[in-house]
Amino acid sequence: MNIQKILLGAGKMLWLPALVIAAWWVLSGTSENFYFPPLSKIFEKIIFQATEGALWENILFSMINFTIGFVVAGIAGILFGIVLGSLRRIRVAVSPLLDFMRSMPQIALVPVVIMAFGIGPEPKAFLIGFICFWPILLNTIDGVRGLNPQLLEVAKAYRIPYPVYLMRMVLPATLPAIMTGMRIAIGLGVVMMVVSEMYSSTRGIGFYILQSQESYRITDVWAGTIVIGLLGYLISVGFVAVERYLLAWYYQVERRRLRKRPARAAAETAAAPPVRNPASEHAKARLTADKDSEVVVATRKGV
């Protein structure tokens, strides 16, 4: 009975992807077009590359670069974000700079960095870290600034030591915002991973695509592209799982808030005490922080 339900649910989600793949498979089945080889050939190629080719080695290379860049950017982004979120003066002073840095197309740095520092893995990890850093930083800042001022009052009234306050109050409370930043960063990081390898490399999944393109092995190009798609998908699915686990409390609170009659939820928000966050008193000087956080709000509620 329960199994039936699960199968039905899975069926409702899977039929369209299955249909799309089937249609592609059939329609391309007899394709003579050089640029659009049959899907069956592409799959054969992927399997061949996975069993006899260098697919895993390339994936590993890409993933290591990605992971190093992302993790370093994450740590740096959270640390600087908490500092800048708490220290208004410094934040205001650097805000135009941050604004500029995060809206610059970081990909523009690829030729310079790779030409100067070589085609090895380090410059690639650096570039990935560089593009991941900004959304994490800005969302963390936003999260710290959006903290319920009551939290600080509690910490002061109960004389919570500052490090404990940071680790057990600020960090968890900011985590939803940090996760948003990270989710955006993952998307950008994967793009940078591909670009940095396609620009110039000797390994990596982007390199595999590039090399195939240069020798007109079009089926390999398709194979590599599909593998990158799957890789991106797995990374984000994995991240969502981690996020669900870390933010279980958050989703519960949100769900309860939304389940209530909307009018009541709104009234509750309105009943919250006036914000006395010294930061928000200077709303004008406010750093126009990453509006991307709206995306998350939408996402959280949507899911």
Binding site: L16, V194, S236
Partner: peptide, 29 residues
């Protein structure tokens, strides 16, 4: 809700797909 559920996986795939990886295919064609 029906379309939402049906397209969820494709959408999740599409949004995590680095579009720039398609470049070689289109440059070739």
């Amino acid at each position: 809700p029906f379309l939402e559920r049906s397209s969820r996986i494709l959408v999740d795939f599409g949004r995590s797909f680095p579009a720039i990886a398609l470049l070689p295919i289109f440059v070739l064609s």
